[in-house]
């Protein structure tokens, strides 16, 4: 059982949880994730470690309510408990070989790039950051990003905040005037794929964080498998970060839809109950 120390609503359907997990906090690094189960019968669902405090013994996650488990989680009040919380899983991000990095976060992907923005600032090489969302009410961590980034570019599909358009539009514009040697892009798979298609043309090395469907998160089920450079890899133990230009995107996107029908049903059941 892990206590929710603090719970903050950040954007429409996005909640920040500060969870007590001393062992995880002590060994976490940016880029790693945790898996939690909301309650005794819950599903195992993965979330990126957005921040951690080894001294306070806490781990911060940012969760977008998209389905059964994430909505259930949002119903636990501050001070309440999560049944299971395991981590840190996966490999830490390693961008050390790059000098001029552009970070791109789409939707909840902002949760993954924020620790990077912070880490790069701490290293004395703050980076440019593009944060994209469908609409203004879905944007989050604006203040935090402003503090961490060299330049922050906000993009919304509908223009309700920042520039109207897609992150790829902004990427194209920025790449023309900057000399990025790496793009680190995290968001929904179609967004990451679009970024990779563009950076392949621009010849910029691109790292993505793959949010495959997982069960154990330790390499025991193969459910999270994907093809990278023609080889089968496990997102949980070989990743979650991969060279985006080597990913078989058709396959990855297809595999992310395996349970679409069941998920719809689960969600209906829950929202039905909640109403």
């Amino acid at each position: 059982m892990n206590k929710i120390i603090k719970k903050t609503r950040l954007a429409e359907n996005v909640t920040e949880y500060v969870v007590s997990a001393p062992d995880v906090a002590r060994h976490a690094h940016p880029g790693q994730f945790i898996i939690l189960r909301v309650d005794e019968d819950g599903e195992r669902v993965p979330f990126t470690i957005c921040d951690y405090d080894a001294i306070a013994g806490t781990v911060t996650i940012l969760v977008q309510e998209v389905g059964y488990s994430t909505i259930k989680l949002s119903q636990i009040p501050e001070g309440g408990f999560i049944a299971d919380f395991v981590g840190p899983l996966g490999n830490p991000t390693d961008l050390s070989e790059f000098k001029n990095i552009l970070l791109i976060g789409g939707g909840i992907g902002a949760a993954v790039i924020y620790p990077q923005a912070k880490a790069l600032r701490a290293k004395g090489m703050p980076s440019d950051v593009i944060v994209g969302a469908r609409t203004a009410s879905l944007l989050m961590y604006e203040k935090e990003f402003k503090a961490a980034a060299e330049n922050l570019y906000l993009i919304t599909d509908d223009g309700t905040s920042g520039v109207k358009g897609f992150v790829t539009d902004e990427l194209k514009r920025l790449a023309a005037v900057n000399n990025y040697d790496c793009v680190f892009a995290v968001g929904p798979m179609p967004m990451m794929r679009a970024v990779c298609a563009l950076t392949a043309e621009l010849n910029i090395k691109t790292v993505v964080s793959m949010n495959s469907i997982m069960v154990d998160g330790t390499g025991m089920c193969g459910g999270c498998r994907l093809t990278c450079g023609g080889k089968t890899k496990y997102a949980c133990v070989d990743g979650p970060e991969f060279d985006g230009h080597l990913i078989d995107w058709d396959e990855a996107i297809n595999r992310s839809k395996v349970y679409r029908e069941q998920e719809k049903e689960h969600r209906c059941r829950l929202t039905g109950e909640v109403k």
Binding site: D41, G42, E43, R44, Y68, S69, K72, V215, D216, M220, C221, G222, G223, R225, L226, T227, T232, E251, N254, R255, K257, V258, Y259, Q262, E263, H266, R269
Partner: peptide, 29 residues
């Protein structure tokens, strides 16, 4: 082998046994 519908026995059995997907209302599909 990475088509949808291809499982490792580990994943299939873990989903059904440990995650109780055999029960009608299991959150794990």
């Amino acid at each position: 082998e990475n088509l949808n519908g291809v499982y490792s026995a580990n994943e299939y059995l873990t989903r059904v046994n440990l995650m109780k997907a055999y029960l009608p209302n299991s959150p794990t599909p």
